[in-house]
Amino acid sequence: MDCKFFCKNILNFYYQDLENKEAALMQEHLLHCPDCLKAYNNIAPLLNSAEISKEIVPDHFFYTRLAAKLDRPKNERMSYSLYTRLAQPLFVVCLTIIGVFVGIKISDGIRDNATSLNTSSTENQLISQLAGEYYMSTTKEENVETYYLSEK
């Protein structure tokens, strides 16, 4: 037996899919060929690691979680995903648009109030200015008696 034949049948040898005669020859070759022994020693633990997977079991609460899912109506998940995918983003978009619109309206209202306040304060200022000017002009007026006396 040569190394080429051994490498071609290494998995068959591991899984014991060879006939007895061939398996014996492979076994014998392993004892005399360090390269093939190394290759086999690399591959065998890898294949053996799958054996550990056979011990895998879900935990004790598997049925509890399954029963909880089983109680739900069949189309609940579908409707939930439809809600998540369409209705929820649409709702958020609408809410944002309404929020922006309301915000604009509120800011407009505030601006109008501020303008009207400004207008009324300007009027008041004008009135008080005129009143001041009138007062000043009246106080500066010459006394009638003084006027007549001076005329004479």
Binding site: S53, K54, I56, V57, P58, F62, Y63, A67
Partner: peptide, 18 residues
């Protein structure tokens, strides 16, 4: 159904994980 799940959950779980 619980008995059925307990009997086959390991097999199903392993086949999915494989």
């Amino acid at each position: 159904f619980k008995t059925f799940v307990e009997a086959y959950n390991g097999m199903v779980f392993r086949s999915v994980m494989s």
